[in-house]
Nucleic acid binder design. Structure first.
Lengths: 112, 112
DNA sequence: ATAGCGTGTAAGATGTTGCTTAAACACTTA
DNA sequence: TAAGTGTTTAAGCAACATCTTACACGCTAT
């Protein structure tokens, strides 16, 4: 999970994941989508993603095709979802409690 | 989302999030759980989490109580879940395709 | 007011990350 | 075999993250 979350923390790598979500894409084609950075930079991101087991690689002749490996996200998704959902239901419960207790209030958490 | 995912990429901060998931916890109490690192280090992590809007702070006299702010995870969860689930259904589809096409196979993706 | 406690901030050392350029590798085709 | 194409690896560097120690802040209670 650690490797996956660290990999996903980078915006370029997230963009790469989106690119290879639905289809295999070659390293060169991926690099074309990022004109602002060099090919080696993209290649290094691909290595990071591969090491984190977030993508699969298929070598075909000269080229390497990358594709999302969604199982690699399982633990990370589970962790975040647990945090997110269980805690949201708690908030909902407390909102009800508060509603029950008093009607006028000075709430601290402003953005709910 | 960027801040949230970067914040969550650190294992210490993830552990802090778990601590403050169900109840308010004071900075000192949080720091006690991490004997290996100093209090200022914990304080800095708390600042990062606050800046990423992943926790709420309540000041009560001397102390500051932290608590998970699950809405802060919404975008990150959505992103990862989209990657995860849509792509898993694609894999399932392809598995069916492959099954249909031929029965003996040499699979590359080992950990499914 | 002053002492004490809980907590945050500042400054600096150290390791890590993400980039660039240059070079190497691997496969293809003449 | 030699040249060409797609891609990765190496080396070096600037920026950033995380930790530590020392200090400052703010509230509480003598």
């Amino acid at each position: 999970m650690d490797d996956a979350l660290r990999a996903v923390a980078d915006p370029t790598r997230r963009a790469i994941l989106v690119l290879v979500r639905d289809r295999e894409v070659s390293a060169g084609e991926i690099a074309e989508r990022f004109p602002e950075i060099s090919r080696p930079a993209v290649s290094q991101h691909l290595r990071t993603l591969t090491a984190a087991r977030l993508v699969d690689v298929r070598r075909a002749g000269n080229r390497r095709f990358y594709r999302l490996r969604p199982e690699g996200l399982a633990e990370a998704v589970t962790f975040l979802e647990t945090m997110w959902s269980t805690s949201l239901s708690r908030l909902q419960y407390e909102a009800e409690q508060e509603e029950r207790a008093h009607t006028g209030d000075q709430d601290v958490k402003g953005s709910l």
